[in-house]
Design a protein around this nucleic acid. Structure first.
Length: 477
RNA sequence: CGGGCUGUAGCGCAGUGGUUUAGCGUACCAGACUGGGGGUCUGGGGGUCGCGGGUUCAAGUCCCGCCAGCCCGACCA
């Protein structure tokens, strides 16, 4: 076996790509910047879809589907939106062997096509709120790509809601941000910081963008999900009005929110180690794998015993049984570790005679012997421990790499000389300061975290003027 | 679009103008022994050396051009 690639002998980005490809989650395709998601990678996405979709339904949303192609004129209706997306649009100019009268854009996001329909669907306050989600692919012609983190085409869900009042739209925006926070923290075991984006970092066309930001193991930040308050911007652009209770006409208020296959990248970069993926039990497509260990003379008895264990677990957990005769146990151990399966269950002749099995944790490597009857309950509690253990480990890592900085010299040293991380700093709110900081350090404001308004008293880290916000600065993906 | 690096078997690589039929590891195929941390042995298949041109008695190796990929930037979820 060749020496495994680690962040110590290559850069972090190569390490990450190596894990993605070694675990056979995805490949680059013949289409530049686009990836092929392999079955193992897609299984992760399906798990995420299932959980998120349940959370969307619980909060009153419905799924729908809108076209891939958007008339070019639609994109141009909202000024900020055009400006934000123009550089990365792919345009269809020909179809059916003829040049089209008006080109179509391949959707980079669906606000415009959806709001063109909402105009027809919304007449009265009785039609509101309209709470719709779409699972779809989108295309943004990115200059540089990285599997799962930034590909030209990616899969996502995009929620688009319409409301009668500004307050309702804002409430929806924050409700969905909270759904994302819960999903990231409770399911992906990935601690996130929630808050609002600066005006420079917000979505093109939004009034405000809220986000969940996570710290990866190289101490860079990753925006893992966004929820936008769109105000009346798209209602104005697409002339979507409704008649209120009093008989007057008003523009509707909007939100949109999305997470993408980038979450798979986030999951990998949060928990994985040099042996491969580490998946939290709640999201892992396979939670445990039963590996029989046998010699030729006792093969059939061991296989029967191992199958009994598998059968005792299969209705309660997502469990696989690896009786492939072509690979040695050692090979299988390494392979299933690479794939991130949270618990491995070894059953050999010794275990069979004792009526037991050995459970091995992927996250710590700890081996636990369990009697046959107690395996299901043991596994259940182990999953809980692994889930919270991964969360706590990631949280401790973030806390250990987050510092409060008040002097600009220290700020520059933190990002330009040190290893970086999250810097919590006071900021005056001026876009000029923000731009200067980006110029000097490549660090950007990731988020203005919630719940820190009282702490924003003091001087801006860059210009020294009266601060208005506490901001989290970091280099990001 | 700039800067750097790399194109030789599925993958990872060596090959420094002249060892015959271009090698090594791994993967693959056949068989046997094995099996509690990526097994051992024997035999086997697999190559337009990225593409095009040039120099030379002789080019994977030198020169020119082109193409592709990756990494680092700029842009972005």
């Amino acid at each position: 076996m060749a020496e495994r690639i680690t962040p110590r002998n290559v850069n972090y980005s190569e390490w990450y790509i190596n894990i993605v490809t070694e675990a056979k989650l995805a490949d680059y395709s013949p289409v530049k910047g686009c990836m092929v998601i392999r079955p193992r990678g897609y299984a992760l996405w399906e798990r995420m879809q299932a959980v998120l979709d349940g959370m969307f339904k619980e909060t009153g949303h419905q799924n729908a589907y809108f076209p891939l192609l958007i008339p070019e004129s639609f994109i141009k209706k909202e000024a900020e939106h055009v400006e934000g997306f123009s550089p990365e649009l792919a345009v269809v100019t020909h179809a059916g062997g003829e040049e089209l009268e008006e080109p179509y854009i391949i959707r980079p996001t669906s606000e415009t096509i959806i709001w063109s329909m909402y105009k027809k669907w919304i007449q009265s306050y009785r039609d509101l709120p309209l709470l719709i989600n779409q699972w779809a692919n989108v295309l943004r012609w990115e200059k540089r790509t990285r599997l799962f983190l930034r590909t030209s085409e990616f899969l996502w869900q995009e929620g688009h809601t319409a409301h009668a009042t500004a307050e309702e739209a804002q409430e929806e925006t924050l409700t969905m941000l909270e759904v994302y926070r819960r999903f990231a923290e409770e399911w992906l075991a990935m601690p996130v910081i929630t808050g609002v984006k600066s005006q420079a970092e917000k979505f093109a066309g939004a009034v405000n963008t809220y986000a969940i930001e996570a710290m990866m193991q190289d101490k860079k930040a990753l925006q893992a999900g966004t929820s936008h308050n769109l105000g009346q911007n798209f209602a104005k652009a697409f002339d979507v009005t409704f008649q209120d209770r009093e008989g007057g006409q008003s523009l509707v208020w909007a939100s949109s929110w999305g997470v993408s296959t980038r979450l798979i990248g986030a999951l990998i970069m949060t928990h994985s180690d040099d042996r491969g993926l580490v998946l939290p039990p709640k999201i892992a497509p396979t939670q445990a794998v039963v590996i029989p260990i046998y010699r030729n003379q006792n093969k059939s008895e061991v296989l029967v015993y191992a199958q009994k264990i598998r059968d005792a677990l299969k209705d309660k957990f997502r469990v696989e049984y690896d009786c492939d005769d072509n690979n040695s146990p050692g090979w299988k151990f390494a392979e299933w570790e690479l794939l991130g399966v949270p618990v491995r269950i070894e059953t050999g002749p010794r275990d069979m005679e004792a009526g037991r099995a050995v459970l091995v944790r992927r996250d710590t490597g700890e081996k636990i012997s369990a009697a046959f009857d107690e395996i299901p309950s043991k596994l259940d509690s182990l999953f809980g421990e692994i889930q919270s253990g991964l969360y706590n480990r990631a949280l401790e890592f973030r806390v250990a790499n987050t510092v409060r900085i008040s002097s600009y010299d220290k700020f520059l040293a933190f990002f330009n000389e040190g290893e970086g991380g999250f810097a919590e700093c006071l900021w005056c709110g001026d876009g000029g300061c923000e731009a200067k900081i980006k110029e000097d350090t490549k660090a950007t404001i990731r988020v203005l975290p919630f719940g820190n308004e009282k702490e924003a008293a003091g001087a801006c880290v860059a210009c020294g003027k009266q601060a208005r916000h506490l901001a989290v600065f970091a280099k990001s993906y």
